[in-house]
């Protein structure tokens, strides 16, 4: 195998894997991601085969066996426990949204603790709940 063949194969495999990674990041559902990860695994298999052919290393071949089996187990597991998730859960939150949610949760906890300490705090409880709903 000449160098150019190996380089061309490597470039094509990289493009494919990067595209699959884009899909795995975008989703939108768990199943889309697992299909994309399957393609990434296939690309990795292909890359290992390429390296093995380029260097003549025979010891990489068992890696192929393991990868071929592990990819299957992963996708079957995800498919087995796939459920209809709501539109909100389907998306990975951005960092700001996650921070906002976390802040709201903490404020709600603080309000609750405040209420418990003061004994009878009807008004503070409603404030806490309002904050929680506004945040989420």
């Amino acid at each position: 195998m000449t160098l150019w063949v190996a380089v061309a194969c490597g470039i094509m495999l990289t493009i494919g894997a990067v595209c699959a990674f884009v899909r795995a990041e975008r989703g939108p559902s768990m199943l889309d991601r697992v299909v994309a990860v399957d393609v990434v695994v296939a690309s990795v298999l292909a890359t290992v085969a390429l390296v093995s052919a380029w260097t003549g290393r025979v010891d990489l071949v068992p890696v192929l066996v393991v990868l071929a089996l592990v990819g299957f187990i992963g996708s079957v597991t995800v498919a087995r426990f796939a459920a209809a998730d709501s539109d909100d859960d389907r998306r990975i939150l951005s960092r700001e949204e996650a921070r906002e949610l976390e802040r709201a949760r903490r404020e709600a906890e603080l309000a609750e603790a405040e209420e418990r300490r003061s004994g009878s705090g009807g008004s503070s409880a409603t404030v806490g709940r309002e904050q929680q709903e506004g945040g989420s």
Partner: peptide, 20 residues
Amino acid sequence: AAVLFLAGSFLAMVAGLGIA
């Protein structure tokens, strides 16, 4: 072997494009 490698890599690339 080189031809097979190129064709296989091409299929993997197209699969990536298709999946995206």
